[in-house]
Simulated assay, not measured.
Amino acid sequence: MIRLEDLTKKFGSVVAADRINMEVPEGEICILLGPSGCGKTTTLKMVNRLIEKSSGKILIGGRDTDTMNPVEVRRGMGYVIQQIGLFPNMTVEENICVVPRLLKWDDAKAKRRAAELLELVALDPAVFLHRFPRELSGGQQQRVGVARALAADPPIMIMDEPFGAIDPINREIIQDEFLRMQKTLRKTILFVSHDIDEAVKMGDKIAIFRAGKLEQYDTPDRILAHPASEFIADFVGTDRTLKRLRLITVEDVRDDGMGFVSDTDDLGYADALMRERRVESLVVVDDRKVPTGWIHAEQAGGRIGPVASRLRPLPVVIRSDADLRTAVALMFTHDMTWLACVDADGRFIGRVTQASITHRLGDTYRVRPAIEPAAIPKGAVA
């Protein structure tokens, strides 16, 4: 969808962007990351022609933007900035309708679109449509800024540190809402950030810049597991293994072969099953296969009666679609070495253990995954 070929920008003798080559596939989020003055914002603004390039090419959907009017380029892209930029003398509805009206939409259609978008960003149209920006919190203003960028349903969004001025709690909420929207909308997004944690959470790909050069362009997991240089390793941080926990789900590491018993089963059966599976404990489920507790070998061996008479309560369970950061946090909080995994309906489907998490992370460090040559943009470090 977006392809940059030897894209270069010079301000006098200063090279702000030096032969940038990268491609952002349709429907993906690409995070531009790097220290201040590295060229990421300059590259972003060249894409929507707020800054004119010195040389190279920018292709949008295969079309060279040199053949397009700059206004046409910008109207095909939603633009969100850190300062939000809402017009203070306009209501929320009027702010969202700015671009649709420039595109000559009829008034009723533009207003319908504004109401739809407020619902999409989790703001009640009945409450917020006719408020002015000064009547909104910072987080609410940012949501309106995103809604305005989406107003004309552009295929591409350009975002310059859009959540940087929001407090950490609201930033997390807005990031989650945005990712929820993206699952449905599948926009192609260029997103400048200074926050590696935000980049790991939000990006399908990350492009890391230094001194105007693209140092590495890859998936978040590959960048964290295999930084291309000492600079990249230092930039993503010494805790990069912990950052990777966000990228892997419980489903990826769960073990469905560790066994379970029903709360109506006999203790002797539970003891025999633990010996057969060579495990020290089993999850106990009810007749709907919902976990009700767990039983240790010490409670089952040499005893009679139903499992329910000896089970221990489970302090917590985890859904299979949760990330491993959540899993590890729950293990530490409850002093456990494993968690029972459940599906969306709460049914038991296996366990995740500290050992399985450690093994999964270790595998990717021991063997670097092969990268298709076409996946490495010209000029990037593989």
Rank of each mutant, 00 (worst) to 15 (best):
R303L: 08
Q140K: 00
G61S: 01
L86Y: 03
M331F: 02
Y79V: 04
A375R: 11
A225N: 14
D153L: 06
R303D: 06
D64G: 00
G39F: 11
R113D: 04
E5H: 08
D160V: 11
P227K: 01
A297Q: 15
D204A: 05
D6M: 06
A199N: 04
F191L: 15
V342G: 02
T358H: 05
I96Y: 08
R310T: 12
K111P: 09
A308M: 06
E177G: 14
R112K: 15
K111S: 10
V47R: 07
E119H: 10
E135P: 08
R240N: 11
M77L: 02
A115G: 01
K201V: 11
R319D: 14
G62P: 05
G379H: 06
L311S: 08
V316D: 01
L245I: 05
I349N: 07
S55M: 00
A270F: 09
G62C: 02
S320K: 15
N69S: 15
L324T: 14
G350Q: 08
N89D: 07
P306Q: 05
L247W: 11
V317S: 12
K104I: 05
L33S: 03
G268T: 13
K10E: 09
S13K: 15
A211H: 10
P168Y: 01
L361M: 13
P125H: 07
T264W: 02
N69L: 07
D18V: 03
I371P: 02
G139Y: 09
P25M: 00
T337V: 09
V317N: 11
R360N: 10
E276L: 04
I206P: 08
A370Q: 15
W105T: 10
Q299E: 14
F163G: 08
T65Q: 05
T326I: 00
K57Y: 02
T43N: 03
P133W: 09
R186F: 02
D271Q: 11
L282T: 08
P70L: 13
R171G: 14
G302W: 09
G138K: 09
D6T: 06
S55K: 03
A228R: 11
N95F: 01
L245N: 05
P377N: 07
K243I: 05
P306C: 13
T364A: 13
H359G: 03
P100L: 01
I158N: 02
D287Q: 13
L103Q: 15
M336Q: 13
D167V: 06
M159P: 02
A233E: 15
R368H: 05
Q182N: 12
M159I: 01
Q216D: 04
P154M: 01
E72N: 12
P100S: 12
T43E: 12
T43A: 12
V192C: 12
F348G: 06
D66T: 13
D66H: 07
E372V: 14
V381A: 15
L129T: 03
R278E: 14
L129H: 02
T67S: 13
G212D: 05
